[in-house]
Amino acid sequence: MATPARKRFLWMSRRAPHGSVQAQEGLDALLMAVAFEQPVSVVFLDDGVYQLKRDQDPARIGRKNFCAGFPSLGIYDVHDIYAERESLALRGLREEDLLMPVRVVDSAALGALMEAHDVVMSF
């Protein structure tokens, strides 16, 4: 039997973590994809960068701290994790405000990154 073709996935997360369920659904779907050993890169932009803010305590509003799951991505050999520089700057976020190290790239580099992937999933 032929090996199924492996596509390169780019996960693009653009929503704030707790205002809707979209961000959490994105992580759930992402973990599903990595469980199937698909090569995945992840990028946070727009309000999505707020998912990376450290010290979140959503128990205060009765929600789960799902963003704690992002640092587990390294265990699945997902190491290409990016955040858009412009999105961080507009929100006054610095790299030391983030819960894990990510590669900070500008918008132009992000466009090139999208071109380099077969499938872009937007959450």
Binding site: L31, A35, K64, N65, F66, A68, G69, P71, S72, I75, Y76
Partner: peptide
Amino acid sequence: EYYEQYQLAPPVRV
């Protein structure tokens, strides 16, 4: 320990 750190159950592979 895994759950405490990541708020997730680990997959069987892990």
